[in-house]
Structures are given as structure tokens and as C-alpha cells.
């Protein structure tokens, strides 16, 4: 069975003399969620548009499952669902009609259309609006329908450009849940976002871009430990335990592991560690904690760690 993949080969986009994207080489393969980060104007939307043939590359190629998007758009985009720059739907149509159009274009069998449309619309909590005209929808409601359109054909690859823009807090958390549930269904999700907590919550890997140049593409934990800890700034690691732990173990044993700056008990059975070791120390820390048999059930560098990393990396290129 082939694995889904998207690949940029020397992908560049210039507007006149301005380089919006330069020589992007990036291959993402397998079922995972990759967060695409970078400041405003970094080239995220540009990259995603090149992957959907909305704009033409000045140089290089965008490949989906090995097929060039520009040369064979129909084949390349067949397994792809995308949401780029909040499109508008004809205001006179209802979500049901707009989604039927997408379903027909994508060759969804007639017998499945109704059920699948209702299913995706329920997923974005818009059931009540299924037969109302889109023209009267709020921005966030339209965005929800756009998300459902991207999900409709159950694509194996999803290209999402800031999918939670315009959504209320509940909507954002619903999007996170949707993306998480997609991960379990073996999808490749490539998602740009400014919400670092969203990315660190749902993504396995991150790619960071600035001024049209890729800065890093790696596992989330690697990126964080490489660019945050190494810079001297401590990152935060949240540790979840299944049972109570006594204060002495925290302030004694755990605090003295290499790289641990401080350790504190949070409410419940959680620990928060300030950590400034490199990747090796982080690896060792995790295995040490496991060996302690204190009921370790989760270990993750928290969102502020990613923020820290982000700020370090972006600052470095200005």
C-alpha cells in the first residue's frame, strides 16, 4: 500500500523581483499532521497555493503522491482536500447544494452523497443551517462549511491554511478534535497556523518558514529541544502521572536530573518541569522518569516551549 506524500522540489515563487518562496525542498510522507509555521508574509499561503495549482511556480515542482500538481492537476488533486484563504460560496446556494457540487465534481457515488454531506456538516456543527442560503452566514459559519467541503471526499491528504481563522473558541477546539480524529484514520495533514498551542497539541511534526525560506522541518519534540533548549532558554515539559507523587521525589530526585532547572507539582497528579538540556538529555530524562516507576502516562514539551522555539528561530533570521 502506498503512503500519501507531498513534496516540494526546488519550489520557488517570485512576484516581480520579490521572492515569496525560494527553493523550498520538503518531503512529507506518511500519515501524520505537520504544522506549518511562520510569521505573516513568510510564504505559507504561497506554498499551499502552489500545491493546489492556484498559482504557478516560478521554478521547481509541487508533487502530490509523486504527481506534478501543475502538469496533471486532476490526478494530483484527486486524493486532496484543501482549504486555502477562506473561499466564498455562491451566496444563493445552500451548504447542501455547494457540497453536492463538490461531491459530484469528485465523483462521489450518488447513493453516498446525502449521507456524507450530512455527516461532514454535522462534524462542523452546522446541521441546522444545511438548507439555508450561505449569503446570510457569518464568517465563522462560512469557514465551517469550507472545512466540511475539504473533508467531504474523505481525502487522504489535507492541505489547510489556517483552518481555525474566524472560528469561536469552541469552533477552534472542534477543529482540533476533527484533525486529531483524522490522524487516526491515516491521513496526511499539512496545516498552516499561527496558533502554536493548536500545533503543539495536534501536530507530530513542524515546518517553519520565514522570508520564503524553510528554516526547519523535523519532529515537534526535536525542533523544540534543538532550538529552544540549546539557546539557553528553558522549555516547559508537562508530565502526567497516574498516581500521587511525594514532594521529596519531586524536589530531590527529579530536580537533579541533568537539564532540569526546576520541578513543581501542579494540581492533580501533574508535574511541570523547566528544562534546558538538549535533545539527548530530554531523551534521558524521559527514560529516567519511566524507570522511576512513578506511573508516568504522558510527557510533552508544552506549547510555550514551541512558542519559545518559534521566537528563537524567527528572531534569528531577522
Amino acid at each position: 500500500m502506498s503512503v500519501p506524500s507531498i513534496e516540494a522540489v526546488n519550489l520557488s515563487k517570485r512576484y516581480g523581483s520579490f521572492s515569496a518562496l525560494s527553493n523550498l525542498n520538503l518531503k512529507i510522507e506518511g500519515s501524520k499532521c505537520v504544522g506549518f509555521l511562520g510569521p505573516n508574509g513568510a510564504g505559507k499561503t504561497t506554498t499551499l497555493k502552489l500545491f493546489t495549482d492556484m498559482i504557478r511556480a516560478t521554478e521547481g515542482k509541487a508533487l502530490i503522491n509523486g504527481v506534478s500538481v501543475h502538469e496533471n492537476k486532476k490526478k494530483a488533486l484527486a486524493p486532496v482536500g484543501s482549504l486555502i484563504e477562506s473561499p466564498e460560496i455562491y451566496p444563493a446556494l445552500t451548504p447542501r447544494e455547494a457540497l453536492s457540487m463538490v461531491a459530484e465534481i469528485r465523483g462521489m457515488p450518488r447513493s453516498e452523497r446525502k449521507r456524507k454531506i450530512e455527516k461532514v456538516v454535522a462534524e462542523v456543527k452546522m446541521e441546522e443551517w444545511l438548507d439555508k442560503k450561505v449569503g446570510k452566514f457569518s464568517k465563522g459559519m462560512k469557514q465551517r462549511i469550507n472545512i466540511s467541503a475539504a473533508l467531504l471526499s474523505e481525502p487522504e491528504i489535507l492541505l489547510l491554511d489556517e483552518p481555525s481563522t474566524g472560528l469561536d473558541p469552541r469552533g477552534m477546539s472542534e477543529v482540533r478534535e476533527i484533525v486529531k480524529s483524522l490522524k487516526q484514520k491515516n491521513r496526511l495533514i499539512f496545516m498552516s497556523s499561527h496558533l502554536l498551542n493548536e500545533v503543539s497539541d495536534i501536530c507530530d511534526e513542524v515546518a517553519m518558514i520565514d522570508h520564503g525560506k524553510l528554516l526547519v522541518y523535523d519532529k515537534l519534540s526535536n525542533v523544540v529541544s534543538r532550538f529552544s533548549g540549546a539557546d539557553g532558554g528553558a522549555i516547559i515539559i508537562d508530565v502526567g502521572l497516574s498516581r500521587e507523587i511525594d514532594d521529596q521525589t519531586v524536589s530531590g530526585t527529579i530536580s537533579s536530573f541533568p537539564g532540569v532547572v526546576s520541578a513543581e507539582k501542579l494540581e492533580g497528579k501533574n508535574l511541570r518541569l523547566h528544562f534546558s538540556g538538549g535533545i539527548e538529555n530530554q531523551e534521558k530524562l524521559l527514560s529516567d522518569l519511566v524507570m522511576m516507576k512513578i506511573g508516568l502516562i504522558s510527557f510533552h514539551p508544552s506549547s510555550s516551549a514551541l512558542e519559545d522555539t518559534y521566537l528563537n528561530l524567527i528572531k534569528a533570521t531577522l
Binding site: M54, K73, K75, V80, E85, I105, L159
Partner: peptide
């Protein structure tokens, strides 16, 4: 102008 084209163009069909 109305960005309605953006809804369709990312789908697998020829321009």
C-alpha cells in the same frame, strides 16, 4: 473578486 473561484479551483478538475 468575490473569491467564489477559490471554492472550486482547489478541486481535481481542469480550469
Amino acid at each position: 473578486q468575490n473569491k467564489t473561484g477559490y471554492f472550486l479551483v482547489g478541486n481535481p478538475l481542469r480550469r
